[in-house]
Each structure stands twice: as C-alpha cells, then as structure tokens.
C-alpha cells in the first residue's frame, strides 16, 4: 500500500508532469483558456492514463519487446476513442471546447512515457496508482494555468466574473497569453530554485521523442544536477 501512496506523491509533486518534467506541452498550452477546460482536459487524460497503465501492466509479459511501442499506441488509441465517445454523449460542451485535442491525447508524451518507463515494468496496482498520480499532477498543472489565464484574460474564475470588463487583459485568453503565462510560472519556479542554490530548468531534452523521456522519468534528478 505504501508503494501506491508513494506513486501518488511522485506523480503529483516530485515528478509533476507539467512543472517538473515539462511534458505534454501541446494540450497544456492549447486548452487552458479557462479553469474548467484545463481541469476537463486534465481529468480526461487521467482516465486514459489510468486505463492504459493498468492494461499495459497486465499485458507486460504478453507483449514482445520488439513491437511494444505499436502495441502501446493501439491500446492508448482505443481508450482515447472510447473516452471521446463518452464525452460526446455525456459532456458535449466539454467535447466541443477541447475539440481535436481529445484525439491528440494519443500522442501525449506523458502517456507513452509512463507506459514505457513504468507500466511495462511494474505490477498492476502500482501502475494504476502511477497513472492516477501522474494524471492528477497533470490536472493540477493545467487547472493552475487555466485559472491564471481565466483571471487575467476574462476576469472570472470557473465562469464567475469578478473583475470589471475594462480591466481584462484580453491577450491572455488568446494563443500568445498561453506562452507568457507558462513562461512566467516557470520563471518563478526558477527564481525559487536559484534561491535554493539549484540550477535553472533546461528545455525538454527529449527532442520530442517519447521513448527518450524514459531516461528522464527514470532519473529525473540526474538531468537537473541536484
């Protein structure tokens, strides 16, 4: 049981995918126009991550090593398709707000990264909790970003407006704002790290290749020189 709680802590705090590993940038920037959209995307990804981690962990002895990437991709794509249909049926408004970013969960580095580096090597229960932890960490990151952009851009939080129209900074609701808010949040983090005598955050070193994130996830501290 301790192992499961450790996985949750690891996903939410120690290896938070948004702020520590800087993975899954596309949805992070694209859908965080408001708190609800950010949290919705995060929770959708969490569900897919939980299911895919569980199934991949169950099948880890069946899937041959040579074809594991295509096999993982098919498993993830199947769950994404299922979740997409559930959203279309029961939460059409969220489905419309997230648009093409739901099918694109398939290529989210976090999911393949976790499948490769954790679920394919560990038993079912810790893998499930690893999925929950990572998913919740991602959800927290997205909600945070979404809340910031919603407050600055449309003066509201979760749709409840509390700042008058003339004080809204519209640009935070649009594409450039996403870059600026994330830049600001990482800069603040860097400031704190520097005060603790650590190095600033480097750019993602995986060059967009998910399998290489594996090394980073396995050894996150090595890269950051702590």
């Amino acid at each position: 049981m301790n192992k499961c709680i450790e996985r949750l802590y690891n996903g939410i705090i120690k290896e938070n995918p948004t702020f520590v590993l800087i993975l899954g940038m596309c949805p992070t920037l694209a859908v965080t126009t408001s708190l609800i959209n950010g949290a919705g995307m995060g929770l959708t990804t969490t569900v897919v991550l939980m299911l895919s981690n569980t199934i991949i962990s169950m099948l880890r002895k069946v899937i041959p090593a040579e074809v594991r990437m295509p096999a993982f991709i098919v498993i993830v794509a199947s769950f994404v398709t299922m979740v997409q249909f559930l959203l279309q049926a029961y939460l059409p408004s969220l489905n419309n707000a997230l648009g093409i970013y739901i099918p694109l969960i398939v290529v989210n580095c976090i999911i393949l990264g976790r499948a490769e580096s954790y679920a394919s090597k560990n038993p079912v229960l810790p893998s499930l909790f690893d999925g929950i932890g990572m998913g919740l960490g991602f959800t927290i990151g997205l909600s945070f970003l979404g809340a910031f952009r919603e407050i600055l851009g449309s003066g509201s939080i979760a749709g409840v407006q509390f700042i008058a129209e003339e004080y809204h900074i519209r640009i935070f609701g649009y594409a450039p704002g996403a870059f600026f808010v994330l830049a600001g949040l990482i800069a603040i983090q860097n400031k704190i790290r520097l005060n603790h005598g650590k190095k600033v955050k480097e750019l993602p070193s995986c060059n967009g290749k998910c399998t290489e994130c594996e090394q980073k996830c396995d050894n996150p501290t090595g890269k950051e020189g702590e």
């Binding site: 870059f179 830049a183 860097n190």
Partner: peptide
C-alpha cells in the same frame, strides 16, 4: 536575467512570435 534563462525566454519569444502571427 538568470531566472528567465532556458525555458522561460524561449516561451516568451514564442509568445511574441505568436502575437506577430496574430
């Protein structure tokens, strides 16, 4: 500035480019 090195400055550049493309 030291805390903007690496990731943040690149994101800020991307944001400015994004404004230009806007």
């Amino acid at each position: 500035p030291e805390s903007l090195r690496g990731m943040p400055i690149v994101l800020i550049i991307a944001g400015l480019m994004s404004i230009a493309f806007f």
